[in-house]
């Protein structure tokens, strides 16, 4: 054995053992469970092959939650990064105001989604909710709504609260990316006659591509994992309109007690995450100028 191999084992051994016990083995156990009809904790279970996966792809509630999760991920990949880039460009100036805002904007991403959910419930609630009060103030009482209880607005209401926080995450990363763009490049483009929009499209956006890949990957993972905020705001309701996949897994586990099906759905979510992040990584490498 090479001496460095011995050192490698000494360094990596203990943490890898813990990781295996807490992550690798349970994932394998979940995979096994997904092929069984396990339903009450601890009871032995029957092997039923792919039945849970067939059930997952034919059951209307599972299909609906897959749809909700995909729509969420798509809009999550569009709106918060765009907002974040916009805010970052606004705050790029070296002013006192920008400096204060940059610090203040760490608050939304350092607070828990329980707290975020709580404030947005207060914003959306009927009666003394902020939105309805403002509508009343300008004489638009007819538009007042129980935003989180209405089947057609609930999902977007939760999404907006989530985008509010994720935009800041994107903003912080883009801000770091913007400061790393050499001023000479922008200046050179200007000298060559590029307008503001052209500089943005042809210089800034391509140079930010590596950062964009990071932003999109992080936000995609957060979209697919979205449990905390939904749990804090609606628990999947009204009538399962905001039931994302993690929320559905929760429901199957703790209301229906079907561990086999829950494992199958959670593994489908795992596979979706791998596909999305793999695709984004490929996209990021393909068009990257710097390697």
């Amino acid at each position: 054995m090479r001496p460095t191999t011995r050192w490698a084992i000494l360094f990596m051994g203990p943490p890898i053992l813990l990781f295996t016990a807490i992550v690798v083995v349970p994932t394998a156990m979940a995979l096994r469970l997904s092929f069984t009809d396990a339903n009450i904790l601890g009871q032995t279970s029957q092997w039923i092959g792919f039945d849970n996966f067939v059930e997952a792809f034919t059951n209307e509630h599972v299909r609906k939650s897959i749809r909700i999760t995909l729509v969420w991920t798509l809009f999550g990949a569009l709106i918060p990064p765009a907002l974040g880039l916009g805010i970052a460009m606004m705050l790029q100036a070296n002013t006192r105001f920008a400096a204060i805002m940059k610090s203040a904007l760490f608050v939304p991403i350092s607070i828990s989604l329980v707290v975020v959910g709580q404030v947005w419930i207060w914003i959306y609630q009927p009666g003394d909710g902020l939105i309805n009060q403002m509508l009343g103030l300008v004489g638009l009482e007819s538009l007042e709504e129980a935003w989180l209880a209405n089947r057609s607005t609930a999902l977007w209401a939760v999404f907006i609260a989530w985008a509010w926080q994720q935009a800041v995450l994107a903003m912080i990363l883009y801000l770091a990316g913007l400061t790393s763009i050499p001023g000479e490049l922008v200046e050179a483009a200007r000298v060559d006659g590029a307008g503001q929009f052209q500089v943005f499209r042809r210089v800034i956006v391509p140079l930010l591509r590596p950062i964009t890949t990071v932003v999109l990957s992080l936000i995609a993972i957060n979209s697919l994992r979205n449990f905390d905020l939904v749990f804090a705001m609606t628990q999947g309701g009204p009538v399962r309109e905001t039931e994302t996949m993690p929320m559905l897994v929760w429901r199957i586990l703790f209301r229906q007690h079907e561990q086999g099906l829950a494992s199958a759905v959670s593994l489908i979510l795992f596979a979706m995450t791998l596909v999305v992040v793999g695709g984004l990584t490929w996209w990021g490498r393909r068009g990257s100028y710097v390697d």
Binding site: P26, L33, Q259
Partner: peptide, 13 residues
């Protein structure tokens, strides 16, 4: 990329 929900049942046991 492993959703926490994957781990819940095995870890609970």
């Amino acid at each position: 990329f492993v959703p926490p929900q994957v781990l819940l049942v095995p870890l609970f046991t």
